[in-house]
Design a protein around this nucleic acid. Sequence first.
RNA 1: GCGGCCAUCGUUCAAUGGUAGGACAGCGGAUUGUGGUUCCGCGAACGAGGGUUCAAUUCCCUCUGGCCGCCCCA
Length: 509
Amino acid sequence: MPKTVKKPAAPVKPTAEKPVKPTGTTAEEVLPKPKRTAPAPNLLRGMKDILPGDQKYWALVRGAAEHIASSFGFDRVDTPVLEETALFVRGVGKQTDIVEKEMFSFVDQGGESMTLRPELTAPLARAYINHGMWNHPQPIKWFTWGQVFRHERPQAGRYRQFTQAGLDVFGDRHPVIDANLIFAAYSLFKDVGLDAVVMVNSIGDAASREAFKEQLVTYYRSKRSHICENCKKRLQRNPMRVLDCKEEGCAAVKAEAPQIVDFLNEESKNHFIRVLEYLDELEVPYQLQPHLVRGLDYYGHTVFEVVGAEDADKPGSQTALAAGGRYDALIETLGGQPTAACGFSWGIERVILRLKEKQVAVQDLNQPEVFVAQLGEPARRKTLALFNALRKDGVKVAESFSRDALKQQLEIANRMGVRFTVILGQKEVLDGTALIRDMDSGIQEILDFKKCAAELKRKLAMPAPPKAPPPPAPAIEDPLLAEEPLLKEEEPEEPAEEGKKGKKKKGDE
RNA sequence: GCGGCCAUCGUUCAAUGGUAGGACAGCGGAUUGUGGUUCCGCGAACGAGGGUUCAAUUCCCUCUGGCCGCCCCA
């Protein structure tokens, strides 16, 4: 076992804090195991870490959402993640799945029941009321972005803590509001490079809805023998949901079922038609979904979802990337003055999932453009200064100060994909010069150290030349092809050599 | 909340009732100050807890977590 011998020879860094082993079992005393002192903690179910590799997607979507918000004239509002439980019971609806079985609720030390917000709309409405926003010029246009929590069974694109961002308009009942909000929701997808389609429907006002439900139930009762067990239950609890059923028998029944559009009263119908007209005007690709309904109590009139273009024909319901609608009744339900409102939420994780699936090209964050390399202690000191000068100048600069070998530093620079590397060695320090290496061509120039920063900025301002083709592909294992290089002697190494030659010429001048 | 499938280095994929192998990534080397190709080396895993067994990563159970379908939702 040679393994055990070599490491101890090297001077071992004294470990300041030795891991404290809580156990005193004999087994561990006899066989001290240096690693894994404690079991690794688990991530809580449905929770997710967002690591550096994913941050670029978040930056992209966050940036796009913020841009849409500000360009459409929405002001940012943030509300707490914790609210009193009653807010959601009243706002979202006691009978909804969210409130019945998905809320993270608890009683705090003071005996009060509080809940991690399962959605953003009710808290926003609460804030509107609390701060007397009706005293301000209407409409109030708010943008919000934050974490929401639902205790559901996790799946891809469905987490227990997830992120919603949304736009809401309070105090304006005009249909143009609905349409422009739908347009804003849709715009995000265009901006990040995703094809999307809007699914839209109207569930009318309360009166229209009641009339419809009655007819729907009557109709389904007449078809009782053809529908699934689940739908029979739905008829009792939440009749409109039968329209979502994917069972074969139910689908057939659904085809003949009454549609809510036919039950809309004059006002509701008029509102919906005008929304659609404005959508045409905005050239939003939309589809009428007569069976689209929403699970939350507060919706009325316009309801919509935005789905990926490829999901347009699929009936599945996990496909919504954004969803919303009009909720004129909510503020009053929560105890405010009757105030019209309309809004939607983007499901950020789902948007990001889609970006990855579609392999949308997203710019890397923190992509450095220059690497500073040093050889020897005096050079390291100067490099330290140069790094900070460049950094303050707004150049994205990378380093590996602690390393000594130039080779390694260039390897790192290469991996980082920088355009230029500044090299400082003994010689350069003495001469007051610096080497700038073009990483693509391998050409190096010597120049005055003091002019180095300015020259780099000048070079970076010029567009990067098209990427040189990657180094020679590995030779194909074919005896016939393998013979050729023998005839041509040194051919295969050409590209690599070229760079080196270029460097030598310039470097020696 | 219901049903099903699954769980091995950082990632991905193997093998095995006697404590695990590769690939990629990482780290380090291939003579003195030069990256991309190549070669060599090193570190790195059986999710947790019980049970069966002389022996469990392997078989059984529970838990935890992931994925799929349903409910529902972003």
